[in-house]
C-alpha cells in the first residue's frame, strides 16, 4: 500500500474490534471529544450485517480540514483495538511506523476455524516485532478490578487520551453524554484509570 499525499496535521484514529464489542460507541465518544475541541471532523462507521460478531472498524479523522472520511493506507495516528486478532488484521493496512497502537491484549478466536491455529502469542509477537509504539493492555482485568468488565473499552480510551491534545474535561463530558446514566461514575473511573496507569507505566 502507498502513502497518499495529504495534510499531515490531521489526526487519524482507527477503532477496530468485533461487532457487538462497542466499536461504534467508542467511535462516538472519541468523535464527540474531537468535535467539542472545535476541529473539523469526519467519521465513518459500519452498520448492518457486519455488526453481528464480524470484524468491524470505525474511522475518525480530525484536524483543520478533512475530506475523506476513510483513513488512507498506513496513515492512522492511533489505532485503538478491542481484540488483539483484530489489531493484527488492521495494523498492516492502517498503521505506519509512527502509529501508536493501543490494543487489548485479549482476543477471541472463532472456534469453528480449526485450520488457522495462529495463537495469541504468535499474534502478540508479530505486533511487537513490527510496531514500535505498541501498547498491549490487559484491559479486561483492569475493568474487572474496577467492578464491571464492560468498561474495558473506556480504560483503553483513557490511555488513548494521553496521545491527543484534547483536554480531560472534554473527554469526560463526551463519556457522560454517551454512556447510560447509571454507569457514568464507573466509566469515568475507568477512563481515569486508563489514563493514570499509562502515566505510571504499570501496564
Amino acid at each position: 500500500m502507498v502513502n497518499t499525499a495529504c495534510s499531515n496535521n490531521n489526526v487519524n484514529i482507527l477503532v477496530c474490534g468485533i461487532g457487538g464489542q462497542g466499536v461504534v460507541l467508542a467511535g462516538k465518544i472519541i468523535s464527540r471529544a474531537a468535535f467539542e475541541s472545535g476541529m473539523d471532523i469526519k467519521t465513518s462507521e459500519v452498520h448492518g450485517m457486519s455488526q453481528r460478531g464480524g470484524s468491524v472498524s470505525t474511522h475518525i479523522r480530525y484536524g483543520e480540514k478533512i475530506y475523506s472520511p476513510i483513513i488512507p493506507g498506513n496513515q492512522a495516528t492511533i489505532l485503538l483495538s478491542f481484540d488483539i486478532y483484530e489489531t493484527a488484521r488492521f495494523a498492516p493496512d492502517f498503521a505506519g511506523e509512527e502509529t501508536v497502537i493501543i490494543s487489548s491484549g485479549c482476543g477471541k478466536i472463532p472456534s469453528w476455524t480449526p485450520k488457522c491455529q495462529t495463537d495469541i502469542y504468535t499474534v502478540s509477537g508479530f505486533l511487537e516485532t513490527n510496531f514500535k509504539f505498541l501498547n498491549l493492555i490487559n484491559d479486561k482485568k483492569i475493568a474487572r478490578d474496577l467492578g464491571n468488565i464492560k468498561v474495558s473499552n473506556i480504560v483503553l480510551i483513557g490511555l488513548l487520551s494521553v496521545f491527543t491534545q484534547i483536554s480531560e474535561e472534554i473527554w469526560i463530558n463526551a463519556i457522560k453524554k454517551n454512556v447510560p446514566k447509571k454507569t457514568v461514575d464507573i466509566n469515568i473511573n475507568a477512563f481515569l484509570t486508563g489514563k493514570k496507569n499509562y502515566a505510571n507505566k504499570i501496564f
Partner: peptide, 24 residues
C-alpha cells in the same frame, strides 16, 4: 512537490482467520 512514498509495512502480514458475521 507532491511526495509519493511507498510503504513497506503492508508486506508484514500475519495469517488471521476471517471473522465472519454470525448469529448472536
Amino acid at each position: 512537490g507532491t511526495q509519493i512514498q511507498t510503504q513497506s509495512h503492508s508486506q508484514n502480514k500475519i495469517s488471521i482467520p476471517p471473522r465472519l458475521p454470525v448469529l448472536c
